[in-house]
């Protein structure tokens, strides 16, 4: 990783990347893989947004305890994103509503967006990567 920090110097091109998370944690590997890709991308100084819609909002639940299913609790890792300078976390209001959740149920500070705001945010990206 020490090498990667130096690799990005000099390229200078900053693109808007959106990582779109639409899956619940643990049932598939998408959520964990998506998070790892975001952490790696952080080394490249790009404009990164992380978005949680549909079942993806379940990834951010407070109070997750995975001991009983013997898998890693990566919900704690979302709190490390700030240290990686990834501070643009967005959650879809309708997806929260449909699951009986509010912002207070989430483990990190997020910006909750209405569907048209989310749609515009997505449309202005250079790259959207889905998980």
């Amino acid at each position: 990783m020490s090498d990667m920090d130096e690799m990005d110097e000099g390229s200078g091109i900053v693109k808007k990347f959106m990582f779109l998370n639409r899956k619940a944690p643990h049932g598939t590997v998408y959520a964990l893989e998506g998070l790892e890709v975001v952490l790696i991308t952080a080394a490249f100084d790009q404009d990164v947004s992380m978005v949680f819609t549909d079942d993806g909002v379940y990834q951010l639940m407070k109070g997750i305890d995975t001991k009983g299913i013997e898998v890693k609790d990566f919900s704690k890792t979302y709190r490390a994103l700030e240290g990686y300078d990834i501070e643009k976390l967005y959650v879809d209001q309708a997806s929260l509503d449909a699951r009986g959740l509010t912002e207070d149920d989430l483990i990190v500070d997020v910006t909750v967006l209405a569907v048209d705001e989310m749609a515009n945010l997505m449309a202005e990206q250079d790259v959207v990567i889905s998980f």
């Binding site: 639409r22 549909d54 749609a119 515009n120």
Partner: peptide, 15 residues
Amino acid sequence: RSSLESCLRMATQGS
């Protein structure tokens, strides 16, 4: 699956 529904919800006019 719900992916079409989510897509139609988030696609901006003219997409």
